[in-house]
Each structure stands twice: as structure tokens, then as C-alpha cells.
């Protein structure tokens, strides 16, 4: 992230502040994400990682500052953005096929009935098939989505986010609720797609380690602020200690994994209500709290 006269950034935040339910989720955040890069949003539960994604989507208004997506205000780049919300898995009773879910990503927001024939229909089917092939979901896309595994659902949902060939992919905890082999496989898949298609990827993650090798940069959100840079710059003892405002230590294991030790959880930082109010706020409810635990991975 050196040259200042690079092309229009994919995402740019200028002195941005988000206030929800009367408290600042984070404030005065400056951030530039260059096109074609693969960037992770890290931080403890409740720090406002999903809020950052929602601000880029235009789903959360700013209390101050600016957000731009490809040089435009957020919300105007609908077709340019592929979005995977914090998951939600489909339960076994959902009697809709995976291919239908992917197809909805293409034309599900259009009014009226689709024509069952014609060139537009063939082009759409081709786009859907291509997206499904890209994530390797061909073998189970014809099955009801409630009946395939969590990892398979996640691949289909990534295909759904990709089907319109977005320039920016916003993935909110796509690795959450996957087992370790699937985490690695899905992370590698996202990295490959990003590189091959030149798509900018912003991925919210609990743990940097499964995706560390593919990352161009990280945004670390904690203590109401955010720092960005390469993982080696950001996930360090001095940077994170400054961000948290208290001493935390980053250990680097012999295989290059970074582990944050003594990390306070977000709730103790904000005196506000525990269950925060940005609408996706079930961060606190789950027990996956890897980074809630002192000594969990970054």
C-alpha cells in the first residue's frame, strides 16, 4: 500500500464514525482498500466488524465522515458488490435447491415473472452454472439447500455472491461454523477467486491464521478504532496494545501463526449494553468465542 496515485480505491473511509443506539461503534476511521486486494477485518466480538461491512454496503448510516465504494457513495454500487451476510445456515426443511439460491443472487431482486425461454434466460443460466463451477458445487447444487452440509452451503452462498461478477466481495464471517478442513478449503477458494478474477475481497474473520498466507492486508477493529496495514505491521504487540489501550502481546509461533495473548474482550471496552444494536448483533450470543478468550488467535 505504497503508491498514493493508485487507481480509485475499492473502498475508502475518511474520518468515518458510526453511532448506533447512542454509542459510537467506532469513530474517526480512515481506511483505503485498493482494487484487487484481499483484506481481512479482524477484531474481538462486538468491536464493530459487521458494522464496518454494513457501512460499506450503505446499510448503516455514518454519524460522521465519508464512505466511498469505487469512488461513489455506498448503496449506489449494488451490482458491483457481492455480499455474504453473517451466517445463517439453512435448516433441513428449506425445500429450495442450491441452484435456485444461486439464481436468486442473479435476478432475485427483479420484479415480475422471468421468461422461461430466450437469450436472456440462457445467459442467466450460463452465469449461474459458471458461478457454481467456480466454487466446485456442481455435484450438490441440484439438492435442496437444507440437506447439504454447512461447508457446501457456504460454497453455494459464495457462488450466489459471485454470480453477478461483482468487483467487491463483502464476506461476513464466511468461515464461521465450518470445521477446520472446510475453513481452509473455503479460505483457499476465496483467495483463488480473488486473484483469478481480480475481485477485491473484504472478509470478516475470527482467526487470521487460516487466511494469513493469502492476505494483502488486514483491518483490525478494536476499542472503537481501527488500524489497517499488512498483517506483519498490524498484528504486533505495539500496534495492538496501542489500539486496545492496554498491554496485549502477540506471539508468533514457529510456523508463522500469530496468537494474541491477554486480549481484553470488546464488552469491557464499551460500557454500553452487552447485546449491541446494529441489527446483526448476535456476536455475543455464540460460544465460538475464540477471541473472547485471553490467548486466542488474532
Amino acid at each position: 500500500m505504497t503508491d498514493a496515485d493508485a487507481p480509485t480505491p475499492a473502498v475508502r473511509l475518511d474520518d468515518a464514525t458510526v453511532r448506533l443506539g447512542g454509542r459510537d461503534i467506532w469513530s474517526h476511521v480512515d481506511l483505503v482498500i485498493r482494487p484487487g486486494t484481499f483484506v481481512a477485518v479482524l477484531g474481538p466480538n462486538g468491536a464493530g466488524k459487521s458494522t464496518l461491512v454494513n457501512a460499506v454496503l450503505g446499510a448503516v448510516p455514518l454519524a460522521g465522515g465519508r464512505v466511498e465504494v469505487f469512488g461513489r457513495p455506498p448503496g449506489e454500487g449494488g451490482r458491483d458488490i457481492g455480499y455474504l451476510p453473517q451466517r445463517r445456515t439453512f435448516d433441513a426443511g428449506m425445500r429450495v435447491r442450491g441452484v435456485d439460491v444461486v439464481r436468486m443472487g442473479d435476478d432475485g431482486d427483479r420484479w415480475g415473472l422471468p421468461l422461461p425461454w430466450g437469450a436472456a434466460r440462457r445467459a442467466r443460466d450460463a452465469r449461474v452454472d459458471e458461478a457454481i463451477d467456480l466454487v466446485g458445487a456442481g455435484a450438490y447444487a441440484g439438492r435442496p439447500i437444507g440437506e447439504v452440509s454447512g461447508g457446501e452451503q457456504q460454497r453455494l452462498l459464495i457462488a450466489q455472491a459471485l454470480v453477478r461478477s461483482p468487483r467487491l466481495l463483502l464476506l461476513d464471517e464466511p468461515l464461521d461454523s465450518l470445521d477446520l478442513p472446510n475453513q481452509a478449503a473455503v479460505a483457499a477458494l476465496i483467495a483463488d477467486i480473488s486473484r483469478a478474477a481480480g475481485i477485491t475481497v473484504l472478509i470478516v474473520a475470527h482467526d487470521v491464521n487460516p487466511i494469513a498466507s493469502a492476505l494483502d492486508g488486514v483491518v483490525y477493529v478494536a476499542g472503537g478504532r481501527a488500524v489497517s496495514g499488512t498483517p506483519d505491521e498490524v498484528i504486533t504487540t505495539p500496534t495492538l496494545s496501542a489500539l486496545y489501550g492496554t498491554r496485549v502481546e502477540v506471539l508468533v509461533t514457529s510456523d508463522g501463526r500469530r496468537v494474541v495473548v491477554g486480549q481484553p474482550d470488546a464488552a469491557s471496552h464499551h460500557a454500553g449494553p452487552h447485546g449491541h444494536t446494529h441489527g446483526h448483533g448476535h456476536d455475543h450470543g455464540h460460544d465460538h468465542g475464540l477471541d473472547h478468550r485471553p490467548g486466542g488467535p488474532a
Binding site: 451476510p85 439460491v101 436468486m104 431482486d109 420484479w111 422471468p114
Partner: peptide, 16 residues
């Protein structure tokens, strides 16, 4: 069509 989208996948539909 949008109703089906909102039914199956409300979060993504809203973002769209």
C-alpha cells in the same frame, strides 16, 4: 420473484 428471494435469503435480498 423478490418475495421468494426475501423468503429464502432475507439478508442478501435486503442488501440487494
Amino acid at each position: 420473484r423478490p418475495l421468494l428471494f426475501a423468503t429464502v435469503d432475507g439478508g442478501v435480498a435486503a442488501a440487494r
